[in-house]
């Protein structure tokens, strides 16, 4: 199964829209596991890239999910997935590389992975259930996802095991997104 992206484009390049989207993303990072609906009428993962990237950053798109016409607008430098600060991926395929995890002195070098999934649910109704705890989460939160290969979470839990090293995950479906920073503890299975 592939998580296809639709190419609706609201004005994701407008600064005021980007500010609005950033505040939603800020809420997503502040309160991991809270599913945010994208405030713009656009494919969330592309809108998020548009709001965050510029010529100073690196991006990798190993599965060619982005149209070529988008790249010049993002301005980001194209680098291999192992080195990129941002990686755009189809969540239905198992991970095939180890992203940048940062270093002990500079953990901010850890990558942000944007995974396109089929759907996000704030209950346990979808295939892959996750129980979340950690900073930003007052009580245990359960979310579930369709179209995400479970190996992503297994690999991610390994990548974040020696804090402060790690990666951030942002899961996006067609309308919503949720952030899973490296401090979030993810248990697969959750409350069934």
């Amino acid at each position: 199964m592939n998580n296809e992206m639709t190419m609706v484009e609201a004005d994701i390049w407008h600064p005021a829209q980007q500010q609005q989207l950033f505040r939603s993303l800020l809420d997503a990072f502040s309160y991991p596991g809270r599913i945010q609906s994208c405030p713009l009428q656009a494919e969330p993962c592309i809108a998020l890239l548009g709001a965050l990237l510029d010529g100073q950053t690196t991006l990798s798109d190993p599965q060619d999910m982005l149209q070529e016409t988008i790249w010049p607008k993002l301005e980001a430098q194209r680098v291999p997935s192992e080195l990129a600060a941002f990686v755009l991926l189809d969540g239905s395929h198992a991970p095939e590389f180890v992203p940048s995890l940062g270093t002990l002195e500079e953990p901010e070098g850890g990558a942000t992975l944007l995974l396109r999934v089929a759907s996000l649910h704030d209950d346990d109704s979808a295939v892959l259930r996750m129980r979340l705890s950690g900073p930003g989460i007052r009580q245990l939160v359960t979310i579930s996802v369709n179209g995400l290969h479970a190996d992503w979470i297994v690999a991610r839990n390994d990548w974040v095991s020696s804090f402060p090293l790690g990666v951030e995950l942002v899961l996006c479906d067609a309308k919503n997104f949720v952030a899973l920073p490296r401090t979030t503890r993810i248990e697969i299975g959750g409350a069934a």
Binding site: P15, Q18, L26, A51, D54, P164, T183
Partner: peptide, 29 residues
């Protein structure tokens, strides 16, 4: 522009904020 800073400056600060939240207490340059 709105907010005095240019958009590139804002984007950089925003990316740093996200890393700062992800690594609580780490001084992100």
């Amino acid at each position: 522009s709105f907010g005095f800073l240019d958009e590139y400056a804002k984007k950089e600060v925003r990316r740093c904020i996200l890393k700062a939240i992800s690594i609580p207490g780490y001084q992100t340059p």
